[in-house]
Design a binder for these strands. Structure first.
Length: 110
DNA sequence: CAAGTGACAATAA
DNA sequence: TTTATTGCCACTT
């Protein structure tokens, strides 16, 4: 039968980000790989279009360098940084997330 | 329908 | 080392 509705790419991003546990972070590129795509930009677009930050921990998503996003949609990058610290994420002197300690690994596939 | 837009990442200089 | 450029693709207008 058919009629199976293909899940929009954005929705898959939200769904995947929601699987990231607190105290852990992930990168745009990692999310893109988990979705079998090459563009981390689509992931960022989805998070920016994020309708509900309370359901989508977009603050747990950082650059491949471990840096925070340039424009957090709900209070600025400062808010994102604060949430990470509240969850126990440690930052380096450069203000970057310690990916070596908090980078989350996704399950086999989605 | 076509063009524009964009929370990135990798490479070049 | 930092800055600039390119590639890439789904969503919005």
């Amino acid at each position: 039968m058919a009629t199976s509705t293909p899940i929009p790419f954005f929705q898959q991003v939200y769904n995947l980000v929601q699987t990231v546990p607190p105290g852990k972070v992930t990168t745009y590129g990692a999310l893109a790989k988990a979705l079998h795509t090459k563009d981390a930009r689509r992931v960022g677009q989805a998070l920016h279009a994020n309708p509900d930050a309370n359901k989508t921990p977009c603050h747990r998503v950082v650059f491949s360098d471990g840096r925070l996003a340039p424009g957090y949609a709900f209070g600025g990058p400062n808010e994102q940084l604060r949430r990470l610290q509240l969850e126990g994420v440690t930052l380096t002197q450069e203000g970057k997330v310690d990916l070596s300690a908090h980078l989350y690994r996704f399950p086999a596939s989605i």
